[in-house]
Every structure is written in C-alpha cells, then in structure tokens.
C-alpha cells in the first residue's frame, strides 16, 4: 500500500514542562546545554533523546521517548537542579504527528496562525488554538507536531480526520520520538 497524502499518527511520549524560577532561566539554559540545547522562544530543538519546545517565556516542553514507571520528571529535576520546576505532563498532553504536503492547508481550517512555510518555518513552535482547543504546534522536518490537552485529544483527532478527508488523510501507526528528533 502506498503512503497516504496526509498521515495522522499518535506519538507516544513522556512530556515534561521545565519552568525556570525567577531569574534562573539563563542559568538553566547554560546548565541544560550540557545535555540539551534549550531553544529560544518560538523554536523547537532536537537532541538524540527527544525534542524541546519553547512556547512560553522561560518555560520548555520536553518530549521524550516513554520511560517505564514515569521516572523522567525526577531524572530531569535532578539534572537541572532546584532553579526550576519540572512538572510531569506525560498523561496531561497528547501528541500527534501530521505528515504530508497538504498538512498546513488542512490546519488553515481551524488554526489562526500564519502557517506559510516561509513564516512558520521548520524549527518554529507556537502555542495557539485549533478547532477551538489549545494546541502547541511545532514544525519538524517531516511534518507538524501537535500537542493538545489529553481531554481534548479525541476532539482534535476527530476534527483533523474530518477536515483532512478531502485531502486523503489516513490514520497511520504511531511514530516514535526517536524518528522525529533528527535535527530540525
């Protein structure tokens, strides 16, 4: 079977939010840089282990391959020290990956951001709304990463499948964090 024009996949991942306490962001970026390049606001960066998105000032969303037993938060808190809060959101956010040429054209039907590739270029990340629900969006080399609260995940997926119908959308098997964390 050939690949669909537009493929929607779930992305099983551990997701953490790292938030710097007052004035600690530069220190955090330096400290984090030893293991990870925390990106500037509005960008997504990749490392072999996963992705980091910055859509709020002095906060980062870290998307990692799932770890058994949910130990990621503790490990990251240990790594980054007490100048930040590491909050576990693995179950609170759902991740999707939308790949294919018409992806941006489809999202125009519910997303108010300018998704022109010249504007929301590869490596961009933004928090916004789509189909009336909160979505964090990142442009990766192979497609678009969408994070949405777990409670609205089904709504977002159903909406994507409906607006994508005319563009040949198909639901495909899960993608892995490793597959996406090539340098954007």
């Amino acid at each position: 079977m050939s690949a669909p024009d537009l493929a929607l996949a779930a992305l099983p991942a551990d997701i953490l939010e790292v938030a710097a306490f007052g004035g600690a962001a530069p220190k955090l970026v330096r400290r984090g840089a030893e293991a990870w390049a925390l990106p500037p606001l509005g960008r997504v960066s990749a490392a072999p282990a996963g992705l980091a998105l910055a859509v709020r000032p002095e906060r980062w969303l870290i998307v990692l391959a799932p770890q058994a037993g949910g130990t990621s938060a503790a490990r990251w808190q240990g790594l980054l020290g007490t100048s930040c809060a590491v909050v576990e959101l693995s179950a609170g956010l759902a991740a999707f990956f939308l790949a294919g040429a018409p992806a941006r054209e489809v999202l125009k039907r519910g997303c108010r951001l300018d998704l022109d590739p010249g504007v929301f270029a590869q490596g961009s990340a933004a928090a916004t709304q789509m189909a009336q629900v909160a979505v964090t969006l990142a442009a990766l080399p192979g497609g678009l990463l969408l994070l949405t609260p777990a409670s609205t995940a089904r709504h977002l997926r159903e909406w994507l499948m409906q607006v994508g119908r005319a563009f040949g959308i198909a639901s495909v098997s899960d993608v892995t964090v490793a597959a996406l964390s090539g340098e954007p």
Binding site: E17, A19, G22, A85, V87, L89, A91, G92, A150, S151
Partner: peptide, 13 residues
C-alpha cells in the same frame, strides 16, 4: 513573588 503556576488538570485522573 517567585511562583510558578502550571495547569495539571488533564495530567491527573
């Protein structure tokens, strides 16, 4: 004040 607020509504059942 040095305080961080994070919405964890959907994280916890």
């Amino acid at each position: 004040l040095d305080v961080l607020l994070t919405d964890v509504c959907d994280q916890w059942a």
